[in-house]
Amino acid sequence: MTEPVFRYHPDPLATGSAVRVQHECSVCGQLRQVRFTRRTPGFTGWQQESWLYHCGDGAAFLGPAGYRDVEPHPDALNMLRASHRQLGWSSEETDEFLHRLDRNGEPTAYLFQCLHCGTHLASWDIG
């Protein structure tokens, strides 16, 4: 039996919303290879999580991201820079912050991708 596929969360194993472990599904009773750690795959942030959207639809969550994960996506980097401009940060402060992004620590970014046009989006969080 194949595991469920989530349009808005394409790789829950990579993001930590699921773990690979053989178990009997409590709903269908069949043997499964993946156990989901929450009912609806998502992510947990230090502040209030915000699911990003684009082209009038929710975007696919690709996972937490450090600078090296976001760097290949200029559209996502520009979104993070715009967020900092709105907060009054200088370009130097923003660049220093972006280079400190850590997918396993803080500050961190959350990387998304539009399901319609492929644009990469990002938000950031710090504890």
Rank of each mutant, 00 (worst) to 15 (best):
T2S: 15
T2P: 15
V5I: 15
F6R: 05
R7S: 14
R7W: 03
Y8H: 14
H9A: 12
P10S: 12
D11L: 03
P12N: 06
L13V: 11
T15N: 06
G16T: 04
G16F: 09
A18F: 00
A18R: 00
R20F: 10
V21I: 08
V21K: 07
Q22G: 07
E24L: 03
V27L: 15
V27I: 13
C28R: 08
G29L: 05
Q33F: 08
V34A: 00
R35M: 13
R38E: 09
R38G: 11
R38K: 12
R38F: 10
T40F: 06
P41R: 00
P41M: 02
P41W: 02
G42M: 03
G42K: 01
F43G: 09
T44K: 08
W46S: 11
W46Q: 13
Q47L: 14
Q48N: 14
Q48V: 13
S50Y: 12
L52G: 04
L52I: 04
C55F: 12
D57W: 12
G58T: 14
G58A: 11
G58D: 15
A59C: 10
A59R: 00
A60E: 03
A60S: 08
G63N: 05
P64A: 14
G66C: 05
G66V: 03
Y67A: 04
R68V: 08
D69N: 07
V70E: 01
E71F: 09
E71M: 09
H73K: 07
P74K: 10
A76Y: 00
A76V: 02
L77T: 04
L77K: 07
M79S: 06
A82Q: 12
S83N: 07
H84L: 12
R85E: 12
R85Y: 11
Q86K: 11
L87C: 06
S91L: 09
E92N: 06
E93H: 07
E93L: 13
E96T: 13
F97A: 05
L98P: 00
L98R: 01
H99N: 14
H99G: 04
L101S: 02
L101C: 04
L101P: 00
R103V: 05
N104F: 03
N104G: 06
G105R: 07
G105M: 09
G105S: 11
P107N: 13
T108S: 15
Y110N: 01
L111Y: 01
L115Y: 12
L115Q: 13
L115G: 11
H116P: 03
C117A: 15
G118H: 10
T119N: 09
H120F: 06
H120A: 05
L121F: 07
A122R: 00
A122N: 02
A122K: 00
S123P: 04
S123N: 09
D125R: 00
I126S: 07
